[in-house]
Design a protein around this nucleic acid. Structure first.
Lengths: 140, 140
DNA sequence: CGAGAAGGTACGTGGTACAAACTAATTAGT
DNA sequence: ACTAATTAGTTTGTACCACGTACCTTCTCG
C-alpha cells in the first residue's frame, strides 16, 4: 500500500499526543488512566459500572482505580439513594483542581507542537481528525 | 482558547489509534509495549540501552520486557563481539511473523477508519500530522 | 417468598515501570 | 600499567494497572 505514510503518520501522531499526556500526568503523580478518570468525573457522577463502560475497563479494575484515587483524596464514593447496591463516584475539589490544571498544561503542550501550523491548517486538521473519530471515541 | 476543538480532536484521535493498536495487540496476546518492541526490532538489532532510548524506558524495565518476550520465543539475546558488557536483541522468525501480521491488521484498521476520506484528504492529513511530529517521535 | 440477576469488593496472577543495589567489563587519569 | 570512574545489564523491592474468579449484598420478578 502506498498508504503506508498515512498509517505511519497517524501512529506517530498518536504516540506524540499520548506521550505528552502521560508526561504531564506524571508531573502531577498521576497515571494516564487516573487522568482519564478525573476527566470523566469532571462532567459526570457515574456509578462504578458506568465508569467501567466509559473507560473500557472491568468493574474489578475500576474498584482498584477508585480506591487509589480515593486514598489520595481526588475522588469520593457516595452510596446511591435509589439503589443501595450502587456507588456513585464524584470528583473532589482537589481532584477538580488537578484535572483543570492538567488539561491546561496539555492544551499548552499541544499548542506548542502546532506552533508551525497556521490557523487554517489547524482548522483543517481538526476537521479531518473529527471525520476519523466515530461517535463513541473515549475522551481524556 | 477557541482552539479547544483542535486539542480535543487530537486527543480523541490519539485514543482512537492507540485503542485500535492495543486491541489488535491483545488479539495476539501482546501488550502495546511488546508490540512496539517487535516494531523496533523489525528494523534494528539494538543493545538493551538503545531499546531503552527508543522506547523511553528505564534499562531495568527493558530487562523485564525482553525477558518476557524471550520466554515466548519472540526475541533473542546475543552477546556483542566488540564489547562483552553489551547484549544485542534480535527478533526471531516467530516474532517477525507476529509483527508483520499485527502491522497489517493495524493498517487495515486505520484504513477502515479513514474509509470516508478521499485520497486528497488522506494526503492532507498525512502532511499535517507529519508537520506536528518532531524528528524523534517514537514509532510503533 | 425464593431464585436469579446486578452492582461492588476481595483476592490472586501477571505485565509494566521505576529506583537502588549489585556485578562485570571498559575507559580515563595519572 | 594500575587504579578510579564509568558504563551495560541484571536483580530486587515497590507500586500501579488489568483481568478473572469467587463472594456478598441488594433488587427484581415470578
Amino acid at each position: 500500500m502506498a498508504d503506508e505514510n498515512f498509517v505511519d503518520a497517524l501512529a506517530q501522531l498518536s504516540f506524540l499526543v499520548q506521550n505528552a499526556l502521560a508526561e504531564i500526568a506524571g508531573r502531577h503523580d498521576l497515571s494516564l488512566i487516573q487522568t482519564r478518570l478525573l476527566g470523566v468525573l469532571r462532567d459526570h457522577q457515574p456509578t462504578m459500572q458506568d465508569l467501567g463502560r466509559h473507560l473500557g475497563l472491568d468493574k474489578s479494575s475500576i474498584s482498584g482505580l477508585v480506591d487509589r484515587a480515593e486514598r489520595r483524596g481526588l475522588v469520593t464514593r457516595t452510596p446511591s439513594a435509589s439503589d443501595r447496591r450502587v456507588v456513585l463516584v464524584s470528583i473532589t475539589e482537589d481532584g477538580l483542581r488537578l484535572a483543570r490544571q492538567g488539561a491546561a498544561e496539555f492544551a499548552e503542550r499541544i499548542e506548542s507542537f502546532a506552533a508551525g501550523l497556521s490557523e487554517d491548517d489547524r482548522r483543517a486538521l481538526t476537521v479531518l481528525a473529527q471525520r476519523l473519530i466515530p461517535r463513541t471515541a473515549p475522551s481524556a
